[in-house]
Computed example of a mutant assay.
Amino acid sequence: MNEFTFNTAKSIRFGSGQLDLLGDITKTLTDDKLLLITDPGMMATGIVDRAINILGQSGFEIVLFNEVEADPPEVKILQAVELATSQKIGCVIGLGGGSSLDVAKLVALLAVGKEKLSDIYGVGNVKGPRLPLILVPTTSGTGSEVTPISIVTTGTNEKMGVVSPIILPDIAVLDPVLTIGLPPHITAATGIDAMVHAIEAYASANPNNNPMSRMLAEKALTLTGGSLLTAVQDGQNLTARSDMLLGSLLAGQAFANSPVAAVHALAYPLGGRFHIPHGLSNALVLPHVLRFNAELKPEPYAELAPFAFAELAQIDPQKRANAFIEKLVELSCDCGLQQNLRQMGIAQEVLPDLADDAMNQSRLLVNNPRALTREDALAIYSSAF
């Protein structure tokens, strides 16, 4: 067996009602002033007010930063860092979707004042230390609460990543009740995102692809494949919501240690240039990248197929990879997601620019099970158009 490294959050708290325990959970880390990081959409749900009240009852002084944007730009991260330093914050809590959690990771690091954002892009460039950090996801998709990754929009449309186990949180708090209010379209997009994480982790060509990640990916696909459509169609179904949140967590642990590849590399330009939500960006390119990969490397997809869709176990293994891809397309359609780039208002003449942008994602492309050139990327975007 090859050597591998596996990192995850130090502590994971999962279950309905965990938000009510947030004050006690935070007390195990600190008594210092807190910075709560979230976004305007979360403010409208009432969850932020609940969290502030729960923390206040435990005696905490709370400073609020609620200006996180989707695909967070550098300027918003630096604004939050300035607030943290000026208020002498001692602990950071991220509450919301993946963008809020990603910002919280970087603020906990940069508020210490020993590193600059411009110096830490890439893999393994973080030195630390960081402030105590708690992450509370309210969507079932990114798995950011257990990944050593934070994605930032730099310049006008390019995304870059900060990757280091130092930015893993001290505690991840997962309460499926917090996902009950997610609209169907967001449930669908984030759910497909979680499935992509599991699929790409399992098939990753990264040298750190490992048996733990593959095991987690299998279980993540069983949970998400069996519950996503129910969660979309019956958003109050707590069993489905719980399965989706746990599946997202497990997929996050999987790809945190066996990194994602070309699906994400081709999805990032869609988010950077057109501000398409990350989960939907993944869904738009997923079948086209998998078809490209499966031409030469069908084995991982054939192996995964029955975990997501039990009925595919009856199909000949030689045909199972393609059947798996088509079932993913069917699931995406049934969930009501857009199916091509035209539906997103993207013009055909920008496809070469997207291909150029995708090739800048070398950190991800090296993990793809099949080597991918710019011409391949353009062909995939054309198929997705």
Results as ranks from 00 to 15, higher is better:
residue 163 V to H: 10
residue 198 A to L: 07
residue 161 G to Q: 12
residue 195 M to W: 03
residue 130 R to Y: 11
residue 182 L to E: 06
residue 115 E to W: 08
residue 187 T to P: 04
residue 216 L to E: 04
residue 203 A to P: 02
residue 187 T to A: 11
residue 202 Y to N: 14
residue 173 V to W: 06
residue 131 L to E: 09
residue 193 D to N: 15
residue 204 S to Y: 04
residue 114 K to R: 11
residue 166 I to G: 03
residue 123 V to P: 00
residue 200 E to C: 13
residue 121 Y to L: 05
residue 224 T to D: 03
residue 159 K to G: 07
residue 121 Y to W: 03
residue 192 I to R: 04
residue 121 Y to K: 01
residue 154 T to L: 14
residue 209 N to L: 05
residue 125 N to V: 01
residue 168 L to Q: 06
residue 186 I to V: 15
residue 129 P to F: 10
residue 142 T to H: 03
residue 184 P to N: 13
residue 123 V to I: 15
residue 150 S to A: 15
residue 196 V to I: 15
residue 131 L to M: 10
residue 183 P to M: 01
residue 124 G to Q: 06
residue 157 N to G: 13
residue 207 P to N: 07
residue 190 T to C: 15
residue 202 Y to T: 15
residue 157 N to V: 06
residue 188 A to E: 01
residue 188 A to H: 04
residue 167 I to P: 03
residue 198 A to E: 03
residue 121 Y to Q: 05
residue 144 S to K: 00
residue 182 L to A: 14
residue 149 I to R: 11
residue 122 G to Q: 14
residue 155 G to V: 07
residue 218 E to G: 15
residue 142 T to M: 06
residue 222 T to L: 03
residue 198 A to P: 02
residue 213 S to V: 10
residue 174 L to E: 02
residue 144 S to V: 03
residue 186 I to P: 00
residue 199 I to G: 10
residue 130 R to K: 15
residue 174 L to T: 02
residue 118 S to Q: 14
residue 115 E to H: 08
residue 132 P to M: 05
residue 190 T to W: 09
residue 166 I to Y: 03
residue 117 L to R: 03
residue 170 D to R: 00
residue 183 P to T: 02
residue 229 L to A: 13
residue 207 P to D: 13
residue 178 L to F: 07
residue 161 G to F: 09
residue 153 T to Q: 09
residue 166 I to N: 02
residue 227 S to R: 14
residue 123 V to H: 05
residue 135 L to G: 02
residue 131 L to C: 08
residue 126 V to C: 11
residue 160 M to W: 01
residue 118 S to M: 09
residue 211 P to D: 05
residue 197 H to D: 08
residue 199 I to N: 06
residue 225 G to D: 10
residue 185 H to K: 14
residue 158 E to Q: 12
residue 229 L to G: 05
residue 161 G to M: 12
residue 210 N to L: 08
residue 232 V to T: 06
residue 217 A to Q: 10
residue 148 P to C: 08
residue 133 L to N: 09
residue 192 I to K: 02
residue 153 T to Y: 00
residue 201 A to W: 04
residue 119 D to A: 08
residue 207 P to C: 10
residue 200 E to P: 14
residue 134 I to H: 02
residue 211 P to M: 08
residue 155 G to W: 01
residue 178 L to V: 05
residue 128 G to T: 12
residue 149 I to Q: 13
residue 125 N to Q: 15
residue 193 D to C: 07
residue 214 R to S: 12
residue 123 V to K: 09
residue 120 I to C: 08
residue 209 N to D: 12
residue 216 L to G: 05
residue 130 R to T: 12
residue 208 N to P: 08
residue 152 V to S: 05
residue 227 S to T: 14
residue 113 G to P: 00
residue 163 V to G: 00
residue 149 I to S: 11
residue 180 I to D: 11
residue 211 P to A: 07
residue 229 L to M: 08
residue 145 E to I: 04
residue 140 S to F: 00
residue 177 V to A: 12
residue 211 P to C: 05
residue 128 G to N: 08
residue 176 P to T: 15
residue 181 G to C: 05
residue 170 D to V: 04
residue 203 A to K: 02
residue 123 V to S: 02
residue 175 D to K: 01
residue 151 I to A: 14
residue 139 T to I: 11
residue 229 L to P: 00
residue 150 S to E: 01
residue 161 G to E: 11
residue 220 A to L: 12
residue 141 G to R: 01
residue 151 I to W: 02
